[in-house]
Structure formats: structure tokens, C-alpha cells
Amino acid sequence: MNLSAIRKLVQIAAFGFMVYGSGLIGYYTVDKFSNALPALSCAFNHNTGDYCTLIPFQHQMAHRVGETIANEGNLLQGLIPTLITLGTFLILFVILSKAFCGWICPLGTFQELLSMIGQKLGLQQRKSVDEKVVKRIRPVKWLVLFFLVFFLPILTGLGYASHDLVDPYCKICPSRILTTLANGNTDQLVVDQANPVTMGFSIFGDFLFGLMIALALTVRQPFCRICPMLAMNATFRKLGLLKLTKNASSRCEKCGLCAKACPMDIREIHTEMVKKDVTFEDCTLCGRCVEFCPDKNVLQLKYATIPIFSASSDYFKKRKKAQKAWEKVTLASLKQPTVQPEAKS
């Protein structure tokens, strides 16, 4: 079994826990696994096993930080809940690092599933997004994190913005719609006409959800590229025990298979020749680059400096063969009639 197959199994199990896990651990917030998960596990889904850390951050910015500043209270006291959430987030993040994106996040899993469906339907897959487009898109996740997770909620707490902007990111997050729909609940796929703010955000959220679905059929991980959780995880990526490392060889310059394999189109994995730690800001630690690296030990996934998965030519050959076989099977190929020798005669 290759690394991608193992990852798929982990993703399926994680999806089950994040979307339906309340049956295992409990219904109430206090029952949840951490309430500060570094993955988009949505609290609007009442059957979730855990909450994404962006939810408490937004509420704490509004109700604790913003209100404390507005009331001229003790800011340190107002920051304590945020620090507790950050501490919990960091404990989890240190253990699995950015693998929360590539292995745990239910929205990431859903986009990969859509990509598989697109490929099986025979839709033309974009092997990689244009470099200029990738570079233009990269800052968006930081803007989303800054404005929607921190800035607007603080403005709400200060009284300068509508109370409906306590959790502005949640209002547009596709995971909110996906995880509730996965439980048969259609309450989140709505246009909220209560006021212009809710209407605008709900329209944008619904549109983004549809856009993400259609794009994911042909483009790898479209939403992950602008996800604020990716930015959040990128901020602390040096603290994670799991890292992607590179021992560049002279063959690297001509190869570039790692960059082609990367679902986030991180070309720097290929071009970086000096740095050992190549866990770049967009990396989700999925390990595909290591799988498709043909040179021994050039790329490695290391856990606390111990290599846990390394590139090798034997693995590369097997993996490439498996990939070709997988890509060959499409709906169109299944429909093609097999030519019988009798028919020829």
C-alpha cells in the first residue's frame, strides 16, 4: 500500500470523526476533542467531533478582546481565552504540524474526492496552475485570516461593525455548508435576508461553495489555496514536529517531478537548492512530492528529525505505475466496448 492510499484511509476516518463524531464523544461543546482544531471542522454541524480553531478565535476577538478594549478593561484579562485557545491549537499543531491540512481537514478531503470524480468523469485535469496565478493567489489566505478572522470581529466588539460580523469567516466557509449538508441539514445553504450584511455574506458563501465544487473537478485543492487555516498553520510551521526536508542533488535541477506532483503547485520544492526545511507556507504535508521523487533520500518526511518516509527509486517506479493505472480508469474507458477476436473474423 502506498503513502497516498494510507493517507486516503486516514482522511476517510478523519472525515467520519469530524463530520459525524458527536455520536462517539458527545453532543455538547465541552465534550468535543479540543475546540481548537487546526482543520476546518465546523461547529455549525451539530454532529461534529471537534471545532475548528477559527471559531473561538473570531468569538474571542469580538466578545473578549474587542469588548475589553471598548470598555477600557484589562486587556491581558481579555486576551486570556485567546491565549488558552492558541495554546491548545499549538499543542495539536506541534504533534501533526501542517498535516492537519493534508491528512485531517474534511474540506481538503472533499476537494480531493471531487478531483477524483472529475478525473473519472474524464474532465480535463489541470496538471498545474500557472505560476503567476499561484503567486497572485497566495496572499489571499493571509488577507482572509487577518480581515475575517481577526479584524472584523474586533471591530464588532468595539461597536464599529454589525453584530452579524462576530464570525464573518464562518459565514463564507464552504466547510459550514459541506458538513451540515453531509448530515442532511440544508439550513446553511441559504440566502439570509435579515439585513444587507447577512445577505451579502450568505450570497458570497453560497457562491464560493458552488465555485469550489466546480473548480475542484478540474483544479487540485482550489479552496485550500485561499484558506485562512493554511495561513494560520503557516504562521507556526517552524514549531511542528513533522517536516518536509530536502537534500538537493544535481539531478534536481532537471527533474521537477516533485513540483508537478504537488497539489498546491509549490514550485519552490523543485527550485530550492539550499534550504533543508522545505515545508513552505502552502505545503499541506501530503507527501506526494516525496512519493514522486525518483532520487533516494532527496525528499523526506521527518518527524522530530527522524525520517519516517523517504524518496526512493523503487518506490517511485511502483508509485508511477500505480498512478498510471489509476488514471487510465475513467468512465469513458469503462464504456468503450472490448473488441472480441470472434467479432474480427
Binding site: 474524464g122 474532465l123 480535463q124 489541470r126 455548508i177 440544508t186 439550513d187 445553504l189 441559504v190 440566502v191 439570509d192 435576508q193 435579515a194 450568505s202 450570497i203 453560497d206 457562491f207 464560493l208 461553495f209 458552488g210 465555485l211 469550489m212 465544487i213 466546480a214 473548480l215 473537478l217 478540474t218 483544479v219 482550489p222
Partner: peptide, 29 residues
């Protein structure tokens, strides 16, 4: 009373169309 599911589906449908256009699904077909 103030949330429309029909409109929600319609807007998501528009998003699907836009995504299909951007992603080049039409070209591929």
C-alpha cells in the same frame, strides 16, 4: 422566515457555473 433555501441553491448553482467556466469544463467537453 428570512432565509431562503431556494435562493441559496440558486446562488450555489451560479457558483458552479462560474467554476465550470473558470476551470475549463466546457472546453474539455
Amino acid at each position: 422566515h428570512w432565509r431562503s433555501k431556494g435562493l441559496g441553491v440558486a446562488v450555489a448553482g451560479l457558483g458552479l457555473l462560474a467554476g465550470g467556466f473558470i476551470g475549463g469544463i466546457g472546453r474539455s467537453n
